[in-house]
């Protein structure tokens, strides 16, 4: 099957999913699918710097928090226009990435992991100290966000909005990694010294990738707040950052759509296993270890290998 047809079918299935859920009398799945789409955006954005830039960030959940608090703070002041929330999140997420990136990108490898983690923790404790916006307990959003005439508290509407953002970011991401910029980013992942000797100021490329990645993840944070009508520091816990890294690795690093696959599979696994036993984390851990051993290139690599064998 040609690639374009495959993508068209997948997109049609994604768009029509709420109707299928209705027919099956399982409206709950729309909310679950929205959650998958949101985390897919976050994982996709992380894959840009992790997979293509070779920069392992353990602080990416900070951007989820920035997006969520952009929605939360505006809503608590009576501003419910989603475009205002989104614009704020893009600006704040981009600025946070710019400032922290300028510092973090002076390092690489383990030091980069530590610094991104540290910045995310700083933001976490900042949110805890924001007593006016719920502090530790978080902030419940009483008013639904609105996108023009659309009410984002409607499950289906929010689902379609999330899918639209996901498709937009996937298209932008694919364009970006195939561009000159993307080529330089990937070259620097592989051989920094050669890239500098060729005359590339690779720190600038990495910083820009980091900013773009942070902006996309901030939108995921907005959508998360729209969905849960609740904002709390827990959105940017370092465990959440780790979960995003696992999604990217599980799906297949440096492929973009692998990140979407990884987000979906991890969330489905969590859901299914949690329904089976309260010791589900043990089983999930075993599955992840097995994946790391047999499929170094993630599910994407596994699928590609199976296709090649046939």
């Amino acid at each position: 099957m040609p690639r374009a047809a495959l993508w068209a079918i997948l997109l049609a299935m994604a768009v029509l999913l709420p109707f299928a859920a209705d027919l099956a009398g399982q409206g709950y799945y729309v909310g679950f699918a929205t959650r998958v789409a949101i985390f897919a955006i976050a994982a996709l954005s992380l894959d840009l710097i992790l997979g293509y830039g070779g920069l392992v960030s353990l602080g990416h959940a900070a951007f989820l928090g920035i997006g969520a608090y952009s929605v939360g703070i505006w809503t608590s002041h009576g501003v419910t226009a989603a475009p205002v929330h989104w614009a704020t999140a893009l600006a704040a997420g981009g600025l946070f990435a710019l400032v922290t990136g300028l510092i973090a990108l002076r390092t690489a490898g383990v030091a980069f992991i530590m610094i991104t983690l540290a910045f995310a923790q700083m933001l976490f404790f900042l949110a805890v100290s924001l007593k006016a916006y719920g502090g530790d307990d978080g902030l419940t959003l009483w008013d639904a966000a609105r996108l023009g005439p659309l009410d984002l508290s409607d499950d289906r509407t929010l689902y379609w909005v999330a899918i639209a953002w996901l498709v937009l970011f996937l298209l932008l991401g694919r364009h970006l990694v195939a561009s000159r910029f993307g080529l330089v980013l990937q070259g620097a992942r592989s051989n920094e010294r050669r890239m500098r000797a060729l005359g590339f100021d690779i720190r600038r490329h990495r910083l820009l990738a980091y900013v773009l990645s942070g902006m996309a993840a901030s939108i995921a944070g907005c959508l998360l707040a729209h969905m849960t009508d609740f904002v709390s520091p827990a959105y940017m816990s370092w465990q959440r950052s780790g979960e995003l890294v696992v999604m990217v690795l599980l799906g297949g690093i440096g492929t973009l759509h692998g990140a979407i696959l990884g987000a979906a599979v991890l969330l489905i696994l969590e859901e299914v296993l949690a329904g089976l036993t309260q010791h589900w984390m043990l089983i999930l851990g075993a599955i992840l270890v097995a994946m790391a051993l047999v499929a170094r290139r993630g599910l994407h690599g596994l699928l590609a290998a199976l296709r090649g064998r046939r």
Partner: peptide, 17 residues
């Protein structure tokens, strides 16, 4: 990549490689 280094300035985000 080497040719790009010699001709390209700016990020080239909108240009295919």
């Amino acid at each position: 990549l080497a040719v790009l280094a010699s001709v390209g300035r700016g990020f080239g985000m909108g240009r295919a490689a």
